[in-house]
């Protein structure tokens, strides 16, 4: 299907789509207000499960990748139930440590290949298969977005108290999102392993997390398509700029992350931002008194204002 692309371009495109899956895995938790930094850990779980099944048990590729994603999802479910009652900073810290426990665990056991990793994973995933998976995931995201489940997830992000008061089981939805996040990260890990044929623990690094995080934060947590398009756009742009050395990459991703957080902390798909950009209508005064605070304080703004 994509034979007209040269092998190098296919490889790059596959890498970008794997990134898109990872960004979606962050999107799904960000959507309900959970700042999870565990994604890279689940990616490693998925990659190692599928690679070990393929190399040691000789499983065919597709079941192996699926099993990897399921194992990552199960781990996410089990540990998600434990850490998801944490709030704010503590949650970020808890998920960060959780992700690292998986990566360090993998690096320190012998049956996982230790720090050396696994070689000889069959390289038989085509770009077409990856495109199909990303599209299928997209369809599921779109259905969820339109359903009351998607609405509940967004409500939890915007105000947990309101969500709970409306009968939304906050803990259950957050666990659901965290499990889905684990599944997607595991899927991405599996695809990546069967793309490159070699994996080692040190590729699931903090730097990779930062890059994915940058993409996810730029995209924002409102539209899943925004996540995919951002991953593709920045991946393609990076190819054209030709940033391969660490300094340029660091400045690009780090700088983007800082600038986006300052200018559009809710990402570029923030509905408010889009509304403001698309129709900038001047609204007449409605009702007796427009509250003076409506312009000055956006939602979720902390009252901390330093003059």
């Amino acid at each position: 299907m994509f034979d007209w692309l040269n092998p190098y371009t296919q490889l790059v495109a596959a890498g970008i789509l794997v990134n898109a899956l990872l960004v979606l895995s962050l999107f799904v938790v960000f959507q309900c207000g959970v700042l999870s930094l565990a994604t890279i850990g689940f990616m490693a779980d998925g990659a190692y499960t599928s690679s070990l099944l393929a190399t040691k048990q000789h499983w065919p590729t597709v079941p192996a990748i699926a099993a990897g994603a399921v194992v990552a999802a199960v781990l996410a479910y089990i540990f998600g139930r434990l850490v998801l009652h944490l709030r704010g900073i503590y949650l970020a810290l808890g998920t960060f440590a959780l992700g690292q426990v998986f990566v360090l665990g993998i690096a320190n056991f012998t049956w996982t290949g230790g720090p050396g990793g696994i070689v000889g994973i069959p390289v038989d995933i085509t770009l077409a298969e990856l495109v199909f998976v990303v599209l299928a995931v997209g369809v599921v995201f779109q259905l969820v977005h339109l359903s009351f489940v998607g609405r509940a997830l967004r409500a939890i992000r915007l105000d947990e108290r309101v969500a709970a008061g409306a009968g939304i089981n906050v803990a259950r939805y957050r666990t659901l999102a965290f499990t889905a996040s684990g599944f997607l990260a595991g899927l991405a890990g599996g695809f990546e392993a069967f793309q490159t044929g070699v994996i080692s623990p040190d590729q699931y690094s903090f730097v990779l997390l930062v890059q994915i995080l940058a993409l996810a934060m730029i995209a924002g947590s409102y539209l899943w398509a925004g996540s995919v398009l951002t991953a593709i756009a920045i991946g393609v742009a990076q190819q054209y700029i030709g940033t391969t050395d660490a300094l340029a990459e660091g400045l690009l991703y780090g700088g983007l992350l800082v600038v986006v957080m300052i200018l559009v902390p809710n990402g570029i798909t923030d509905p408010r931002l889009l509304r403001r950009l698309t129709f900038r209508r001047l609204r007449p005064h409605r009702g007796p008194s427009s509250p003076p605070t409506s312009e000055a304080s956006p939602s979720g703004a902390s009252p901390l204002v330093i003059k």
Binding site: F148, A152, R154, A155, V162, G165
Partner: peptide, 29 residues
């Protein structure tokens, strides 16, 4: 049981219709 709050809690960045829809969640679920 449904309630309102003393210091109005709404999903500020959402529309009026969406805010009301949130209230239907239990019934839909």
């Amino acid at each position: 049981v449904a309630r309102t709050y003393q210091n109005i809690l709404l999903l500020d960045s959402e529309t009026v219709a969406t805010n009301i829809l949130i209230g239907c969640h239990g019934a839909l679920q």
